[in-house]
């Protein structure tokens, strides 16, 4: 009877097999692939992504194909949808289709940039507050609370009224009016993660406070924050719509809210003037919301494999 000695290769096989799919230059794509595998598990978010892609393609390519200035008076007021004007015309005779196509640019870009401002302020305030604690935390949280008790829409309206209704002021006002949730979320995540041993381990390795915040804690804190920021995009789109509806949007840029706002008094006589831009807002907000759900699944770092 012979004693079999070499059994060590059995265990190492286990490791090399797993790493081979990740090793090499495909690090970025590997990560992207991993992200996609998590994302596609949630069918609703895939639908959201397709929907959002459709909306984005439409508002980017649409105006290039359908070259009609949305501010041009092209027909009689309240022309119902027909072969020439697929979505009809508004109360002064401007084409609704042209308005919806190019208005999307303003609505979505305001949404995106406002969400970026929200994330930037929220992350900075939240991470400083959560990481350092103490009086910094107390001070920053008081500031946050102050902003939180202001009614969001009213606050944005005041800012726009003071600084004038341009695309930039609208975007910045929306950003300033809605960063508090991200800040609170970031703070909570930083406070939770700060106590983990891997953060201590980084301190022991000699990491500075800035490195701890940016390199060690932030990537671990991001998933819920990214999800919240994605929700903020839809919130910003809605807020921009509301501002425009109230006549506080940039009057020189067509946007969905502007079309609805200007035609609101004739909604019952000419439904097409409000239904189509309204549907556009609805679809883009819905798609962003659906997608952020999937982001949550995809960004979760510890999707434990079963065996």
């Amino acid at each position: 009877m012979t004693v079999i000695k070499d059994v060590s290769d059995l265990e190492s096989a286990d490791n090399s097999q797993r790493s081979s799919q990740l090793e090499g230059t495909g690090r970025f794509f590997g990560r992207l692939g991993e992200f996609w595998r998590g994302f596609k598990k949630n069918p609703a978010s895939v639908i959201g992504l397709i929907l959002l892609a459709a909306v984005v393609v439409m508002i980017i390519i649409g105006p290039l194909i359908y070259q009609l200035d949305p501010f041009d008076i092209v027909s009689a007021p309240f022309t119902p949808p027909d072969e020439n004007f697929r979505l009809g015309t508004d109360y002064v005779g401007r084409d609704i289709l042209a308005g919806v196509l190019s208005g999307g640019r303003a609505s979505l870009s305001v949404g995106l940039f406002a969400a970026l401002i929200t994330a930037a302020i929220g992350l900075t305030v939240g991470s400083l507050s959560g990481f350092f604690g103490g009086w910094i935390d107390t001070l920053l949280m008081k500031v946050t609370e102050f902003f939180q008790v202001l009614p969001t829409l009213l606050f944005a309206m005041v800012l726009v009224t003071i600084f004038g209704p341009t695309w930039v002021t609208v975007t910045v006002s929306i950003g300033l009016a809605s960063w508090m949730n991200v800040a609170r979320l970031t703070r909570a995540e930083f406070m939770r993660l700060r106590e983990f041993d891997f953060v201590r381990s980084a301190v022991a390795a000699g990491a500075s406070s800035a490195r701890l915040m940016m390199v060690t804690i932030l990537p671990n804190a991001l998933p819920p924050i990214v999800v919240a920021a994605a929700f903020d995009i839809s919130f910003a789109i809605l807020l921009e719509g509301s501002l425009s509806f109230l006549g506080l949007g940039d009057p020189n840029r067509m946007s969905w809210g502007l079309i609805i706002g200007q035609n609101k008094n004739y909604a019952l006589r000419a439904w097409w003037t409000v239904v189509f831009p309204g549907a556009a807002i609805f679809l883009s907000v819905l798609s962003v919301c659906l997608m952020s759900d999937g982001l949550n699944d995809a960004l979760n770092p510890r999707r434990e494999r079963r065996f």
Partner: peptide, 30 residues
């Protein structure tokens, strides 16, 4: 000059870092 080994290996490694980054980070920092 002085380093620490922690109790719970599940929480003392940064879940977002690969083994290579986990090992080279301290070297990089010093």
């Amino acid at each position: 000059k002085f380093q620490m080994i922690f109790q719970d290996p599940a929480s003392s490694l940064n879940p977002r870092q690969r083994a290579v980054d986990i090992l080279t980070e301290p070297m990089h920092l010093c």
